[in-house]
């Protein structure tokens, strides 16, 4: 069994938990298991057999992209960190009328 650290922006999907448990010998197995235990959380991170590009996953402090990706081995007792980007700085709401008069975002770089 491994410990999966849930980032604050995904806690609702984990019933408010900061850490949940999941098991698997590889990251793929672990994420499949997580998706069964907590489908809402799992789908935010992993879908159709791959990790979403805007979420980083670290096994024992190392980015799995620099290791074996979904085949990265997970030990019993490993810590898995799910890490989507956080933008917050001052956390002030944008003032009325402050929204961006921006052109269309680049489709390649923005998932919207």
């Amino acid at each position: 069994m491994s410990v999966v650290r849930v980032p604050p922006v995904l806690r609702t999907e984990a019933g408010g938990a900061r850490e949940v448990e999941a098991s698997g010998a590889t990251l793929r197995e672990l994420l499949e298991d997580l998706s069964v235990r907590l489908p809402a959380l799992g789908s935010r991170v992993y879908a159709d057999g791959s990790i979403h590009s805007f979420v980083n996953v670290y096994v024992d402090g190392e980015d799995v992209r620099t290791r074996a990706g979904l085949d990265t081995p997970v030990r019993d007792g490993s810590t898995v960190i799910l890490l989507p980007a956080m933008a917050g700085g001052s956390l002030t709401p944008p003032a009325a009328g402050r929204s961006r008069a921006a052109g269309p975002p680049s489709a390649a770089a923005c998932p919207r």
Partner: peptide, 25 residues
């Protein structure tokens, strides 16, 4: 290198809805 692209809006609650402990910043 860390985040090649921004997350979708529902994962980007960077505004007032999120809240923050005052001492954290």
């Amino acid at each position: 290198c860390l985040f090649p692209e921004p997350p979708p809006p529902e994962l980007a609650p960077s505004c007032a809805e999120g809240g923050v402990l005052g001492v954290l910043p």
